[in-house]
């Protein structure tokens, strides 16, 4: 299998944080390869380093050592500016707490990554409206985030993550703040997305092993090390 088939290629990645006078080693030599078009779930106890690993894949921070390639780009060598552009063009983020900007309407929130990338506003608006129709929020375009339920906000966040057509979706416990019904709706949405875009990859953090069963690959972090099950 050629390396180009992997959307994520991690080898020997370490990451530690200085806490006072000591260092906390969070990731101790991680190796992980994620196939393009696959759905991978990342499991682990609280504080095991799942979010740190997702941040590394999302170019939000850099590893101390090791190789970290995402979509064929060595993230360790990216400048801050190049990393920002990389996140904007190649990645889509979905957070547990939705993180929609309260000052903007739902439509404006979805349009935001595309506006940061530049391009015609009319075209971006059309794409954002189409995505909001796809996630079932056609009637909520002009609403502010606080006027929506948690499930609806997460749908809007997913639409925002998709606006620039990312190669990789990074989801950090996307159902963590939702009730069972809303959570199931979000998982159905991910499943539908995967079916409609087979080349798009998903890396999702979850505590829920039932959700992990939906994935092609499950990786589990414990004591700073990763074990992968295909």
């Amino acid at each position: 299998m050629s390396e180009n088939q992997f959307i994520v290629n991690i080898a020997g990645v370490t990451r530690s944080y200085r806490i006072g006078d000591s260092r906390l080693e969070v990731l101790r030599g991680i190796d992980w390869q994620v196939r393009r078009g696959s759905w991978s779930c990342l499991l682990g106890a609280s504080g095991s380093g799942k979010t740190t690993l997702l941040n590394l894949i999302g170019a939000l921070e850099k590893p101390d050592s090791g190789l970290l390639e995402v979509a064929g780009v060595d993230l360790g060598k990216l400048s801050r500016r190049a990393a920002a552009e990389f996140r904007n063009r190649k990645l889509g983020f979905v957070f547990q707490a939705y993180h929609l900007l309260p000052e903007l309407t739902i439509l404006e929130n979805v349009m935001l990554p595309a506006r940061l990338a530049g391009g015609g506003k009319a075209d971006i608006r059309l794409r954002a409206e189409a995505l909001l129709v796809t996630v079932g929020l056609a009637e909520r375009l002009r609403h502010r985030p606080t006027e929506l339920s948690g499930g609806e906000q997460q749908r809007a966040a997913i639409a925002r993550a998709l606006i620039n057509g990312p190669e990789l979706l990074l989801a950090d416990e996307p159902t963590g703040n939702l009730d069972a019904r809303s959570g199931q709706g979000i998982l159905d949405l991910f499943t539908a997305l995967r079916e409609s875009h087979p080349t798009r990859s998903i890396v999702m953090i979850t505590h829920n092993r039932e959700i992990a069963q939906l994935a092609d690959q499950v990786a589990e972090l414990a004591d700073g090390r990763l074990t992968v099950q295909e």
Partner: peptide, 16 residues
Amino acid sequence: TREIGLLKALGASDMA
């Protein structure tokens, strides 16, 4: 602070 973090995650550069 979190909104700024989000903007950066979405691709806003330091200059932006």
